[in-house]
Design a binder for these strands. Structure first.
Lengths: 293, 293
DNA sequence: TACACCAACGTACACCGTACGCAGAAGGAG
DNA sequence: CTCCTTCTGCGTACGGTGTACGTTGGTGTA
């Protein structure tokens, strides 16, 4: 038996015993020369044999690695992990506070290491958008009729925007960042109109308008969250600090409506804005769909 | 005749001849002692007499100055001028490129000089918002019925947003920056519903929803302008560069609607989005108003 | 042994907003 | 005349940003 067979068998045993798991690095050629007391040529032959049997794959610059779906080492730097952590940081601290340095610190890595996996901060944000949109779960079949379907989509979007306050202000309509999950969502909404007479262009406009509205409401979320973080004031408290300026302004200009509004107190909530706007929007769309039908 | 009278008359003549204009600095006490060969006490008395006659005002730290609405020297540093220039720069270069240093350079002043007139960049932006909103011209009387009025307001807003692409993304609803012109606009819209049965809270929601929609569409303007500046590509050209990625994505997921849309070509424009959305919104609002009436 | 490759990283650059404090000119009081 | 206060304008410096560039130490392979 050639000496390299012994090495192969040893390694195979380690893999089968679970000592070495998919994605782990098998001893390098240098390490083999040390461990088994052989020449590097022998070690190389062992590597080749392992590779031939499909037990391992050679990854250039990284080493020979046990084949199979790698079960993600916890602290390995990975595009996936970077994006996930970035989302988490942005949710917690706001997009402005998501700096490459802070993100690296959060990951326990050096700043520049991130640039191996992400070409720039901007592209990282695109990846974050895609990940966030991926949370939207829509049934394969559209629930009865276009209106419930559209409403469902809008509510899902709104929910995601709320979970990720930074999302609304970072998405663009005119230049849709190529986020696969965004496109999937679009397709679903377009298809939701299949039971209407709307042509494709009209559907597209309906879709964009809906989305624009939801995002419009949502883009108030980030500044608000940021303001609360920074000043520690809730919205109401803040309004009170501004009250003197406001009343002075109103007094000098005779703004009766506004004045009464602040006197009566105004129960303001983005959720209510969303609900009110969505209802009007769907009503208006209904009229349009009916006119086409 | 006291010698100081001669000085007063000399100065008066200079003012009336137009040699000295409102806002210009009259000779300082020191300068007077030089020019007229008098003691400083005399010069001070001349100043006092001029001030008493209302010809001049003493501005501490600046000098004695000809009274009247100063016709703004062209290159004097002024909050007004700073804000106007800032708006102009932001229109041209985008809000991100509006740095205090660049603004100062544009004004021919040192960076820190600006902070005499503007407490911070953030507050400068608030002032810019107010100035931009000031361009909105609405008739004192609302044109027949709530719907034309609201439509007019929305169109005016849209026009301003188009002229100032940075505006949409910098305004907040939940924490309305106290911009007098913004409040004036609000008041006008609230009053526009006077011929309906909507209560104040409903009007406020209607207003916010309308505004949110317009701003939502508008917030696509800044990124687009920026993208054009940066890459020099128009929207269509850019879409073409992305086409391969896009079609690949579509092919693998069977997105028939999306696919057909890109094949047929899709005539996309923010203006059309605005028109479509506004029409639906107003229709929806109509239903609501009628239900209340 | 030489080579090409790769992850990870440290350093450095240009730029940002703005705190701080100084220089200089002015009017006014003593 | 001298001192004081007030005002504009400004220079310098600090702590932050994104990221270009080059180095280090490991790899498989010829």
């Amino acid at each position: 038996m050639h000496p390299y067979r012994r090495i192969v068998e040893d390694v195979r045993r380690r893999i089968e015993s679970g000592e070495l798991r998919p994605g782990d690095r098998v001893p390098s050629a240098r390490a083999i020369t040390q461990e088994w007391g052989v020449a590097i040529a022998t070690a190389t032959r062992a590597h080749a044999a392992l590779r031939e049997e499909g037990l391992t794959v050679a990854r250039a610059g990284v080493g020979t690695v046990v084949a199979g779906p790698a079960p993600r080492k916890e602290h390995e730097l990975t595009r996936e992990r970077i994006v996930a952590t970035a989302v988490e940081v942005a949710d917690r601290l706001g997009l402005a506070e998501l700096t490459m340095r802070r993100l690296a610190a959060e990951l326990g890595a050096a700043t520049m290491s991130l640039y191996r996996y992400v070409p720039s901060r901007d592209e990282l944000i695109v990846a974050m958008i895609d990940k966030a949109l991926g949370e939207i779960r829509l049934p394969r079949r559209h629930p009865g009729g276009w209106r419930p379907a559209i409403e469902l989509a809008a509510r899902q979007e709104w929910a995601v925007f709320q979970r990720h306050p930074w999302l609304g202000s970072s998405m663009s309509i005119t230049r849709p960042q190529i986020a696969p999950n965004g496109i999937r969502l679009s397709e679903w909404v377009l298809a939701a109109f299949d039971d209407t007479e709307l042509d494709l262009e009209e559907r597209m406009y309906a879709q964009i308008v809906l989305f624009t509205f939801v995002r419009g409401v949502a883009s108030a979320l980030e500044p608000e969250a940021e303001a609360i973080r920074e000043t520690g004031l809730t919205n109401e408290q803040w309004l009170q600090t501004q009250e003197s300026t406001l009343t002075e302004l109103m007094d000098t200009n005779g703004m009766s409506h506004f004045q009464q509004l602040t006197e009566d107190g105004f129960d303001f909530g983005l959720d209510l804005v969303f609900e009110f706007g969505l209802a009007r929007m769907l009503d208006g769309l209904s009229l349009f769909v009916r006119a086409r039908g």
